[in-house]
Amino acid sequence: MDQLDRRLIVATQTGLPLVSKPYHALAEQLGISAGEVQSRLLRMLERGLIRRIGAVPNHYALGYTANGMSVWDIPDQRVDALGAQVGALEFVTHCYRRPRSLPDWPYNLFAMVHGCSRAEVEVKVAHIAALLGGEYRSHDILYSSRILKKTGLRIAG
């Protein structure tokens, strides 16, 4: 990533211009050609610096008002195999292995489940429990009651 990539990130991290030729608008701002903007974005996509280009919906506005972080205590030697299966479920939007923090926190697998109600989240979590069978020791669901902050990442210009 060079200085120009960095300037391109700063110019687009709050969003793409909503104009007919957005890459031209960025090009003008950065003093390069539109083709250069497009090829740099493509390169960043290929290298995984950009996960995707598109719309980021607000879950709550779409009616997904119940946001449950399901957490599971799974034996270390099984967590990767089972985590891959949980992450592949159509309704799991994020799935990670994280360290336990004993004694307060025995869970090492986190699977985010969104639903239009808590009942819907619970049905989905029961589905995960069934998939895991007898292979988890305990689990919990942490519902969010309030968004306190949501700004996303901002790198300095």
């Binding site: 990533m1 990130i9 687009t12 991290q13 709050t14 969003g15 793409l16 909503l18 104009v19 007919s20 974005l41 960043m44 290298r47 995984g48 610096l49 950009i50 996960r51 995707r52 280009i53 598109g54 719309a55 980021v56 919906p57 607000n58 506005a61 779409l62 949501k150 996303g152 990442l153 790198i155």
Partner: peptide
């Protein structure tokens, strides 16, 4: 399309529209 995107961003139906960067890769 542009008007609807602008409206959904203003109404915060969309959090944002554009590239999603993976900070770990940087």
């Amino acid at each position: 399309l542009l008007a609807r995107l602008r409206m959904m961003l203003d109404a915060r139906v969309l959090t944002r529209f554009g590239p999603m960067f993976q900070i770990e890769r940087m």
